[in-house]
């Protein structure tokens, strides 16, 4: 059974890839499996200038999930380009997640990545504050999303995936804006903003006060977002939220996702992506079905 899937101009050998920020540059996982076997490598978000990240504590475990406030720590595009050179030896797609605090920053990073031969396509994180617009999150306003995607796309040749924030409320209009502006795929979604208080000290547990909630506990909510958007948009959806088991991934395919990203579960089992790929192969063989038949097969 073929696990191949086409997302825009890219062909993926299977629909499994890591979620940005949980897989480093990919090279950190060399010890755990052959990166060439993955559908894609998705690297940690990169910005024009290096970012030192947020004040610790940065992580907090909660039942069924975790909060993180890493603060998009990264080495900046100039140094990151050297890491990309090293990823070139793997025979799979390299998707680079990037972000900025202004339209100009987004465009500048996108142009550099577009010109690098190792990069297969770009994944845009729109969960960032727009400094010029008073710090309002780009990803919560359909008009801002449209302009951002349109302007970035104008400046690049490669495919552009747009990763939505679930904190936008109405994801359908955001997804539509991204699609209309030229996104090749929509990634649904990022983490849910949340916090935790230490009742003994009456202080927030995270140094940054709040953070992003991820893990198996968010899966039903993100699944619902994917279900809603899949009916309304035509470009492929890549689902991302709380996948731990093959069943989790299958649910996303059934509601309409063409591929999936695994995030927090990479921390609880560094070999999870490889295991999911094997289990998916067995599942399709046992059920005598194909991935394309599975996608959007929800019966209501």
């Amino acid at each position: 059974m073929s696990l191949k899937v086409r997302i825009g101009n890219l062909e993926l050998k299977n629909p499994f890839m890591p979620a940005s920020g949980t897989f480093g540059s990919g090279l950190e996982y060399e010890d755990f499996g052959n990166l060439s076997e993955l559908g894609a490598i998705v690297t940690k978000g990169v910005s024009l200038n290096p970012k030192i990240g947020n004040k610790p504590p940065r992580i907090c475990e909660l039942p069924g999930g975790m909060l993180n406030s890493i603060g998009l720590e990264n080495i900046g595009i100039e140094k990151f380009v050297k890491v990309l050179d090293e990823l070139g030896k793997y025979e799979t797609n390299v998707i680079v997640n990037f972000f900025g605090n202004s339209l100009e920053e987004y465009i500048e990073v996108a142009k550099i990545l577009d010109g690098h031969n190792v990069v297969s396509c770009l994944e845009m994180n729109i969960s960032c504050p727009n400094i010029k617009e008073g710090g309002m999150c780009f990803g919560t306003d359909p008009n801002m999303v449209y302009t951002l995607v349109k302007e970035v796309k104008k400046n690049i040749q490669k495919d552009l995936w747009v990763k939505l924030t679930p904190n936008a409320g109405n994801l359908i209009s955001i997804a539509r804006s991204a699609e209309d502006a030229g996104a090749s795929a929509i990634v649904i979604a990022n983490t849910y903003t949340g916090m935790k208080v230490d009742v003994a000290t009456k202080r927030p547990v995270l140094g940054n006060i709040f953070g992003g909630y991820s893990g198996p506990v968010i899966k039903p909510i993100t699944l619902y977002h994917v279900f809603c958007c899949a009916k309304e948009i035509n470009v492929p959806i890549i689902a991302c939220g709380g996948i731990v088991t093959l069943e989790d991934a299958l649910e996303y395919f059934i509601v309409g996702a063409s591929a999936v990203q695994v995030g927090t579960a990479n921390f609880t089992n560094p070999h999870i992506l490889w295991e999911l790929i094997k289990k998916m192969e067995s599942y399709l063989r046992a059920e005598n079905t194909s991935l394309s038949d599975l996608v959007g097969s929800l019966k209501i």
Binding site: E28, N68, F267
Partner: peptide, 10 residues
């Protein structure tokens, strides 16, 4: 969270 430099939580 991970132990090998990926999550940046420590």
């Amino acid at each position: 969270a991970c132990g090998f430099g990926v999550c940046l939580g420590c």
